[in-house]
Design a protein around this nucleic acid. Structure first.
Lengths: 221, 221
DNA sequence: GTCTATATTCTGATAGAC
DNA sequence: GTCTATCAGAATATAGAC
């Protein structure tokens, strides 16, 4: 009789699933895929690498996700949402002055990027390759930003004497000062001869500095 | 007799080489490789694409450059030198104040990037994949920057009341404000809804604005 | 030097046993 | 659901004719 053995196996599987730390094969693969795709991009990633990173078999990748492309699409969508939603939206929508929003959004972004340093490069990379496909999934969030924050920006703030500013320059400066250091980390570290721990400390400094700088830029000349 | 024909062929080849616009097969392949590698990176580029772009046969690529990797290494080295040398060095080495250098280097960089918009992303991308290999080839230039400009920066400028500044923040700000817009072009255009021609016009504006902003940053608070 | 045809290696995906 | 073994196609590289 083989039945008892089968039951035994089933119970073991249940026990594993009940354990808090234990991930299913599907989850392990997805997590591994997210790490590698985010770090190396679609083209440079091999499905074999993902399977190995997950400690799983290559065949399981296709069993759960059908193809490399479908798996990538899932990761990409999640990464995009993570990058935009929850960081920009909540900070941008509340009732607050430009100055207050600046301080919040910069600090939130830097904290977020310290935990996800590869994300901005991934976004930039895949956005170059995908002329349009992503556009629809994030257009809602972008429209919200445009309708709320950009208008506020172009009005300026009379109380604190903050003059209005061209939205493009403002966004380019905000992202350039806040997220670029993470994108350009390899070259910045090489040029300035800065260690990883020093880099992290400098990023923490920037949480205070960048909002001050951005205000100085708006008031310049 | 086949000899006369051979001579005829030889003369034709010479005539072609003499023509100003005519590139040799080797040069055509290298030029095509530079375009495609720079735009798509190593992994996403196929040797077939390069051969087709060059209007040449695939076998010639291996005849002249032995392998995809060796061809890429040549392009990468040239791109790195182009990016550092001639842009940074000449501007950084002359006898001038920080303010004067700032104006020159920003304008030179933006003009350069307008002609080579894919270059910074390429550098960033391949620097991520290559932990060390490139380091040696550019360390000389970097050391020159460190020894001349960084020292000047940390001394500040008493005449124009420019206080000294942490080199890392300065470089991060300079590159973030100057080259990031080109790296982040796809996302910036999407968020701010800006056309290609408008983008170029805004970049021209930044030639004047960024130096002013960088000075405002140094004097902030 | 240049081409066509082919060899070789890599990689995504599947078949089929358990 | 999971594994081993294998296939099919793509991509790099080479052999050999001209």
């Amino acid at each position: 009789m083989i039945l008892p053995l089968a039951i035994k196996r089933f119970d073991l599987a249940k026990a594993k699933k009940a354990a808090v730390k234990e991930l299913s094969a599907e989850e392990k693969i997805k997590a591994a895929a997210k790490r590698i795709f985010t770090q190396k991009g679609f083209a440079a990633t091999r499905t074999r690498d993902i399977a190995e990173e997950a400690g799983m078999n290559l065949a399981l990748l296709n069993y759960y996700f059908r193809s490399k492309q479908k798996l990538f699409d899932i990761i990409m969508l999640e990464n995009f949402k993570k990058f935009i939603h929850g960081i920009v939206i909540e900070v941008v929508h509340e009732n607050a002055t430009i100055e207050q929003k600046l301080e919040k959004v910069v600090a939130a972004y830097i904290d977020f990027l310290a935990l996800n340093p590869d994300l901005p490069f991934f976004i930039l990379n895949e956005l170059r390759n995908n002329p349009t496909s992503i556009a629809s999934t994030i257009s809602d969030e972008i429209n919200q930003i445009r309708n709320s924050f950009f208008k506020q920006l172009q009005q300026g703030n009379k109380k604190s004497k903050l003059p209005p500013m061209e939205p493009f320059h403002f966004v380019a400066n905000l992202i350039g000062l806040t997220v670029f250091p993470f994108v350009g980390k390899p070259i910045l570290q090489r040029v300035t001869n800065v260690s990883d721990s020093k880099f992290n400390a400098l990023m923490q400094e920037r949480k205070k500095l960048v909002p001050v700088w951005l205000k100085a830029i708006m008031n310049a000349k």
